[in-house]
Design a protein around this nucleic acid. Structure first.
Lengths: 337, 337
DNA sequence: ATTCGGTATCGAAGCGCTTCGACAACCTAT
DNA sequence: ATAGGTTGTCGAAGCGCTTCGATACCGAAT
């Protein structure tokens, strides 16, 4: 293994000079710099991460804490994770992957050991048990998701309240009076996951304002659960002409069931999905949808965290404005006959 | 931040004693151990990761390299990643997430910097460009997937050849003579991804042995691509009575299309999927399937890597035997009329 | 009583890097 | 010519930990 000292010797300078070439923290003459850089290349030198971390007390690692929940839509998580990892690299950071398994203690462990310089938490609950620990250690952090109390925290999320409102608006504008919402799995609400509740909040208040009826039902993923849920909804509100789905793994089952029952989309039933664009465009009907901007969320999270680590950047809540893309699954409400 | 020295002082012992209590590398009297452990707890001591890595030249970190490909079925990747992270923790390792973005150089960077003690590579191609680098650095590693040349490498994978064979066997046993295979996206084959080719190999050789006709068509995910592919298949081989799908995002579209065309599953058409169990059980028909054991793969990979890091463990190729679960999407071939 | 093998502990060296203060060497303004 | 300010480089002191002798003590065997 090549060390700084060997590079220094090879280039005929002192170790500190090499270090300064690497970090750029002091001015170095062009000739020296070139000699050093040449030696680095020739010897194939890579700074030792541990030594660096010890000496500088910065690890250049960001911890990303992903929960293990199986009732969450996984691809979005994955996309965020990849975006975080990729974006972090462009800022010179690597990403450490923590699963929920270890529980809140992971926060303490990582903060205490100096393993990571900061952390990003995903799938934050309204009253997340990791937050007290996070506030206790003054570990720089960014949440993806919104807890109930955001004081002293930096959070990045899609504006789910506005998302809900947007969906209702779109349907109401087309004359739909009876709207059903097929939500996330019941477990998601029981856990008080912020995004689910905020969406619901947006849906409800906007529909109240616009004077349309709204029926919300949680629903597990998969075909069977969807069949039961849909039957209940149509039984309770036969006049339903618009459906908003927030559970991605319920999208295709829903479309299949509607087709099977002879309800045409969008002629008999309009469908709006809250899901990644890929799902919306690959479904059996091109779905009008509000996209979940996973990449953007990951990128924002990293950038805010890096800003904090560099001393810039203050606590703030960043809500990404939702965008509704009209595709072919929504249309005017059928005239009441 | 609490240091080893502070703990030592608090417990009235030397720093090295505390270190030995922590590592267990030398015998320590019960009384001393307890005193030290108490101090550790009272002071809330966490060993500093960087210092540890520097002194011991082991980081207790495993790098996990996930490619960025969007044409791959992401949930499986995610599941493996989570399994790796979780399993690694039980062995005292953390996981560093590397994306394909950085390219093969990531191998050099991580190996050179001592950031990780070993690495796990996912989505290995037959002739993967990371392998030469991997062999050059003698970084301990485990591949998930099988390259063309496995000498000197440890690999973990589902036995896709056997998987293909198993699918054909199951259908042939039920009297199906004309079988269609809906494969992964064309890009996957162009890239010479091991698992896709090996599956195909198993499918072909077994169908030759059993004397059944086999038609293979790659297919992108989504409804539209599936519609085109299915139409072509049925056009070319109208007698097709069994379908094997290897692209998870094609599963639900396929079922929707069959339903739409009035082909009952399994009466008119048997369908076997190669996919995670969750997909098979949540689809609109309970699919007979060969599961992709993501968890098991992740676990195996970690365990082999840890074995290598501890000096046990030699190079070997671990193929996990496929298991076919019969559900309700397959039945006897319709009698030829 | 003396020696021997264990067991339990300590001190010190050093892992590879960053960073601070010191110091030449040089340039400018007086 | 001299003081003052830059600029570029070096040496040395750690960062917090592991690990290798060395040492001191104990009971068992001679």
């Amino acid at each position: 293994m090549v060390t700084l000292a060997e590079v220094a010797q090879h280039a005929g300078v002192s170790a500190s000079t090499v270090s300064y070439v690497l970090s750029g923290k002091r001015s170095i003459s062009a000739t020296t710099r070139q000699r050093v850089e040449r030696s680095i290349r020739e010897l194939g030198y890579h700074p030792n991460a541990g030594a660096r971390a010890l000496a500088s007390s910065r690890s250049n690692i960001i911890a990303l804490m992903i929960p293990l929940r199986t009732d969450m839509y996984v691809p979005v998580m994955m996309e965020i994770a990849i975006a975080v990892a990729t974006c972090a690299r462009t800022h010179g950071y690597d990403v450490l992957l923590l699963t929920g398994e270890e529980g809140p203690d992971a926060v303490r462990r990582v903060a205490g050991s100096g393993l990571a310089d900061g952390m990003i938490l995903m799938d934050v609950e309204l009253d997340d048990e990791r937050l007290p620990l996070l506030r206790a250690t003054d570990q720089p952090s960014v949440l993806i998701g919104l807890p109930a109390d955001t004081t002293g925290l930096t959070c990045v999320d899609l504006d789910f309240r506005a998302t809900g409102a947007l969906c209702v608006e779109h349907l109401a504008k087309q004359g739909h009076q009876d709207i059903a919402v097929i939500g996330e799995a019941p477990a998601v609400y029981e856990r008080h996951t912020g995004f689910a509740e905020r969406t619901l909040d947006g849906l409800r208040s906007r529909s109240r304002e616009l004077g349309v009826r709204l029926l919300h039902r949680p629903c597990d993923g998969g075909y069977d659960a969807m069949a039961v849920t849909l039957a209940r909804i149509l039984d309770e509100r036969p006049g339903t002409s618009g459906i908003i789905v927030q559970n991605e793994s319920a999208v295709e089952p829903l479309l299949a069931l509607l087709r099977q029952q002879g309800r045409a989309v969008p002629e008999d039933m309009s469908v709006v999905a809250i899901c990644p664009d890929q799902v919306a465009t690959q479904a059996s009907v091109r779905l009008t949808s509000v996209a979940i901007p996973a990449q953007e969320m990951g990128r924002h999270a990293v950038e805010h965290l890096v800003a904090k680590l560099e001393g810039r950047g203050r606590d703030e809540v960043v809500l990404i404005a939702p965008e509704l893309t009209v595709r072919t699954s929504t249309g005017p409400a059928p005239s009441r006959s």
